[in-house]
Each structure stands twice: as C-alpha cells, then as structure tokens.
Design a protein around this nucleic acid. Structure first.
Lengths: 157, 157
DNA sequence: TGGCCATCGTACGTGCACGAACGAAATGGG
DNA sequence: CCCATTTCGTTCGTGCACGTACGATGGCCA
C-alpha cells in the first residue's frame, strides 16, 4: 500500500484565469500536425508493402518514376525536401540500387537522377498500396471530411 | 546558348491511363501532413521567441508547467513521444538547466521531472507567443476553416 | 511468497530535417 | 571579357522519431 499515492496522476495546477482563454497544447495546429504526421508515417510503414522504404524515399521514387530523370535539387523542390535532406535520401536509395545517377552533360554542377530497373519495379509495386495507405490514414473521417482535410492542408502547405 | 536545353523541365512521362484515377503524391494525406508539419515547425522556430527551443521541447515544458511534476514516461504519453525520443528531449532540457529531476520516492524505476525556476520563467515567456504562432500557421485559412482543420486533425490523431 | 510479466528508463542504430559553411561551376551585368 | 552573384551538391552539427534490446524494479497471482 505504501507508495500508492505516488501513482496517482497529479491535477493540473493552473486554474486558468477567467479572463484569458486557456491555452491547451493539444489544440494547437503545430502539435496536431506533429501527431497526425506521426500516425500517418506509422500507417505508411506497415501498409506500403516494404518496411525498409520510408515516406520520403517513396515520394522521391514516385517523382522519379513520373519524370524519368531529374537533378537532385529539382527533385528536392518537387517533393519538398531541402538539399541536405535530399542528399541523404538519395544516398540511401543509391546504396540500395534503386536509384542511379550520372553527371548532367549540360551543367557540370548537376547530377541527374533516375530509377534503376529494380527501382522502377519496386515503386510500381508500392504504388498499388498507396491509395490504401491514404484511406487507412483518413479512416476516422467521412468521405466529405477527407476531401475537406486535403483541401485545408493544401492551403497551409 | 549551349546547354540551354538541359535546363528545361522534362514532361512527366505517365500518360495516366483513362481508366485508373491518377495517383498524385501531392494529394496524399501523408505527404501533405509532412509538408504542413514542416511549415508549422518553421513558423514556430521564428515566432516562439527563442530559436533554441524546439516544438517538442516546448510541448514538454508546457505540460510540466501544468502538472508540476511528472515521470518521464507519463510526460511522453501526454505529449505523444515514445520513450526513446523523450529521453533525448529531457536530456537536452536538463543540460540547459530548464528541467530538473529526482528519483520517485515511491517507485525506484521512475524519475520525476519538473521545471526549474529558469524553466518556468522561460515557458511563461514563450507561452505569450504560442497563440500568435498558431494564428500565423493557419493564416491562409478563414476562421471557420481553422476550426474545421483543428477538428479534423483531432480525429485522425 | 516465489516466479512471471509489465513498466521504467537507458543505449544503440537508422533515418528525416535543416542551418551553416564550402568549393566548383554557371550566369549576368558592366 | 571579367567579376560578383547565384546555383548545385556535399559535409558537419544538432535535434526529432522510433525499433530493439537491456537491466532494474514493481505488481500480480498461484
């Protein structure tokens, strides 16, 4: 019985003054976006069909599949990653033989990236699961709410 | 003039078959959540009032300010971080003298965390900017849309 | 009360994220 | 044509995120 008291959750101490509207961290956009993103990533990881492919790697491969060949910087802009982040993502994809690169013949600063045959094969397999992952992430919402959410998120990106 | 051709953006190659609805990565929840979270973090960093405090550190301090004293694990559950992540966040806050810890007298496995005087001072200063950060993040939305977004995000967290 | 199982915190490895600094290459204006 | 500016990719440092494994502790129940 001793020490039992220590297990009880303490009450919040702030009595929230009657004038100032109380500030709850759980109701702030940034907080909710972090949590939502966490959950989306977790669902992606189990649902996309290859536990070793991350969401950013997937986005990159999907874009490379659309455009055939892109410079590293441009790819980064298309998928919303800064160049330092992109560098790591591309390095890992190259290490796994999913992406190949060659110097841009017209601009010596650039590296042109493309999917290997293996990369194409993989991304086309994963693309089949893409819609299901999105569906599962938004499962708690009605179809109309899902449309709303996508629209609202598009506006604040 | 030479090499100019290399700068033109290549057209996407997929002709999107007429039967299957095209899959655009930019319209997937996970992708939008990642981008939105990125933007929210950037706004937080410049707006919260201390560039060295991260969103997760802020959440943790706000919760510790509400509850006075919490075990590391419980704090992690309250702010949605797994224990390994929490460990790093707490370590950095302790290194900066913003958080203090003592062994739980009733349970030798636990560490009780609390804000130092300095930590309290800081979080109360940052809390003033909290609402403005949220406002700025949702600036592109109408007030009604802002309410909707918070509600929808709450449902999928 | 003794042993099984859950919980707590830590440690390690991997990956995303980004600021800053860097050197090489391209560009554009004077 | 030359030099200042910009772009491109890399590297380094810091921090979040989480899986896994570990050892210590606590709770439960047979």
């Amino acid at each position: 019985m001793r020490g039992n008291v220590a297990k009880k959750l303490q009450e919040p101490k702030s009595a929230s003054s009657p004038t100032s509207r109380s500030y709850r961290i759980e109701e702030q956009v940034g907080y909710l976006l972090r949590r939502a993103h966490q959950r989306a990533s977790a669902i992606f990881q189990v649902g996309i069909g290859d536990p070793n492919i991350t969401p950013t790697q997937y986005s990159s491969m999907v874009k490379l599949n659309e455009y055939t060949e892109l410079s590293q910087n441009l790819l980064g802009r298309l998928v919303g990653m800064d160049k330092a982040t992109m560098q790591g993502v591309v390095r890992r994809l190259k290490e796994r033989g999913l992406v190949d690169s060659r110097p841009d013949p017209g601009d010596a600063r650039r590296t042109l990236l493309s999917l290997t045959t293996e990369g194409q094969r993989l991304v086309n397999k994963l693309l089949i699961n893409g819609p299901a992952v999105s569906r599962e992430t938004m499962k708690p919402l009605t179809v109309q709410e899902q449309r709303q959410l996508l629209e609202l998120l598009s506006k604040i990106v």
